[in-house]
Design a binder for these strands. Sequence first.
DNA 1: TATGAATGAGGATTCATTCAT
DNA 2: AATGAATGAATCCTCATTCAT
Lengths: 193, 193, 193, 193
Amino acid sequence: MTRHKLKEVAMRLFGEKGYEGTALSEIAKEVGVKTPAIYAFYENKEDLFMTVFREAMESYNTFIQELSEEQKELSAKESLYRLLSRQYEFYQQSREASLLVLRYVIFPPIFLKETIEEAFLDSDKLLTNAIEQLIVQGMEDGIIRDQSVQLLVDAFLNLMDGLSMQYFYYTSKEVYERKLNHAFEMYWNAARS
Amino acid sequence: MTRHKLKEVAMRLFGEKGYEGTALSEIAKEVGVKTPAIYAFYENKEDLFMTVFREAMESYNTFIQELSEEQKELSAKESLYRLLSRQYEFYQQSREASLLVLRYVIFPPIFLKETIEEAFLDSDKLLTNAIEQLIVQGMEDGIIRDQSVQLLVDAFLNLMDGLSMQYFYYTSKEVYERKLNHAFEMYWNAARS
Amino acid sequence: MTRHKLKEVAMRLFGEKGYEGTALSEIAKEVGVKTPAIYAFYENKEDLFMTVFREAMESYNTFIQELSEEQKELSAKESLYRLLSRQYEFYQQSREASLLVLRYVIFPPIFLKETIEEAFLDSDKLLTNAIEQLIVQGMEDGIIRDQSVQLLVDAFLNLMDGLSMQYFYYTSKEVYERKLNHAFEMYWNAARS
Amino acid sequence: MTRHKLKEVAMRLFGEKGYEGTALSEIAKEVGVKTPAIYAFYENKEDLFMTVFREAMESYNTFIQELSEEQKELSAKESLYRLLSRQYEFYQQSREASLLVLRYVIFPPIFLKETIEEAFLDSDKLLTNAIEQLIVQGMEDGIIRDQSVQLLVDAFLNLMDGLSMQYFYYTSKEVYERKLNHAFEMYWNAARS
DNA sequence: TATGAATGAGGATTCATTCAT
DNA sequence: AATGAATGAATCCTCATTCAT
């Protein structure tokens, strides 16, 4: 129980205020225990952070994994769009986890740099492959115009990255959804046959 | 001299390791003075940070300002592409400043949230207007296909945001440049007449 | 069972690393139980320490007692030598106990100072008496030269103390045995008729 | 000033209560500063301890050095006796230093074991050589009876070790001096021609 | 302008101890 | 007899900050 609450609170605070910006006492206080209680469950601050971060990363990876394994009954257009909306859903449903992952993927502290790059590259490859498959399929189906696959993949990844950033610094739902749709519409205009 | 060196080092360290992650003693050490010397120039840590952050933000704003004021002798396509390459140049030439701005625009500490949002929205508007003008001009010139201006603007801003993120987490120059060109190529394919 | 193992481990650790240098958790870990289990057998750390220390002291006292009660069938020379070799044996067989006693006899913490001095003085007297008897006997037998008994006693105690220290800071068995024999040889040369 | 007082107090407390038994706050309090002030002069507790310990060891080594270099105008007997009385003087004048050295030579914590053994063996050799020279000289002069040099050296070192221990656990000056004289008298009786 | 000395506040961590189970 | 969870107290240590010089 406490162990779980600790993770939850830690994930949120580490995501919002960063590792150094978050005191163990704050986490403990929110959970309703005294600081030393944390040490009954985690070796030290770094351990708590890593546990929480790994979990967040894992949940992100699982999400990507699922994305890449979805049944391909949809058209390429629908599938690609679905990628964006699923990413959006994930950010909404796992706000804390995604904030944490985003923060530490862009700004890793030295002691995390390696771990993070490793974990992230895996995920990145998985996503890249999934997108590539969708695009190739789309071309085979004649829905996507015959052109460089890497061009289409790079542009789509760029689109997703842009939306990631925007999700976290634009607060308005409407604005974000408009941005998402516009970005995709433009993309699709260039991609489709 | 010292004042200037302090700002330089502070900007780099605050950008790389964040506000809480950077000790004044570290900054002082790199500059070659003792910590209390900092107080001869800045009121306190927050003051040093704000000075440095404001300067970084300003230099980003100036860059955007210049972008938006460029003589429009180029075609819309060239102008838009120039936006991307100038952004790239800025990131390269002012790596420290842009890292700092990026970090605190995405993850502002509570005490900065307001200041930053304000400063950033100005800049965002300026950029949006500049892009809009280019696009309208391009449409008038018949180079850009007649379509929703906001669509084109949103997509372009998204593209720039995506590239911002990618600049800081992909280390390879070649990869980044390919991503930039691919993203733009796709954009342009959808935009052009 | 556990009670016994706790004492054993505690004696060793308290002897090696001192009272403050030894955490209850360490003791528990070596025994294979969790820390609170200790409280099923001992009131607190001090109680465990005192139990263990008292036992060590007792075992030392018993040893001294036995020494002093040995049947005096041997000659004075043999008896005195036997004192040294029995002390040596005791150090070897009860390494932990003797280390603990030595440590806290030389460096008693404030809360133990009195208890220890008391316990030790008893033992010291016993030993002194035993030595004195042997010497007096030796003189009566004409084996020991007629001279001040206190001189002979003091010197012999000094010899034993020196060997105690040396036992614990010289690791080599050979060296120690040589030292022991040499010290005794010299002593005897001065003592004998 | 403070730096010096810190060393002084630290030496006494570390000697009396041991490393773990001494809190930095205690040291600071006695000196009349707050705990963090210590960090202006020493890196951390271990650094303070090592500085103080090294100094104590050095002062002991210097004393041994001086002992071994004394002009040999005295007879062997006087020289040997002088060794003991000089050791006594040293213990009296540098009570804190010698207590510290004694404590950590007999009971080194793991992190000091090597350093101490090294430092101590040097000193031990120096002393051994000095004693050996005195004895050889004494034999050449015909004052000391012709016999095994190692026997005489070992016994003398044993004598010194015994006196070291006794100095710290017998509080009375008179008793100690009697012990010293008796131990030496016996030694000399066996050594002299 | 710069520093050495010092400090208050706070942070991570350890540890003996308690208590319900 | 033993443990998991929790805590109060204390420890070492860092850091921003002050102040006299």
